[in-house]
Amino acid sequence: MRLSDREQDGVVILEPKGKIMGGPDASLLHDKLYEFIEQNKKKVVIDLAEVDWMNSTGLGILISGYTTLRNTDGELKLANVTEKIQSLLTITKLVTVFDAYESVDEAVKAFK
């Protein structure tokens, strides 16, 4: 997995690419998310457009970020959820937990 980040209108956009399956790769996303939380940047969108697939480790990272941000008055939203990941969110009922948007722009606007 590769990871890039940027900011848009005061919102952190995290852009993982590839597969989120656990091991050293997955900690990249976890560590970057917590780096921004420690900088008090608590509006975060994870853009999943270029994530081929993720497993339960990836879902666990999303949940960890979601709960940590929620507990510190922040918020995590998802954008560009691919069909494969949407299927995982549905079968695990996590589709009821995450706010998901069809584009990063829509997710960023939803913070206002």
Partner: peptide, 21 residues
């Protein structure tokens, strides 16, 4: 059961459930 309300936000425990699905 990872779908139980009390387990829904747990970070782990979904692996076998996902495989079965």
């Amino acid at each position: 059961d990872p779908l139980a309300d009390e387990n829904l936000l747990k970070e782990a425990g979904r692996g076998i459930f996902i495989v079965r699905s």
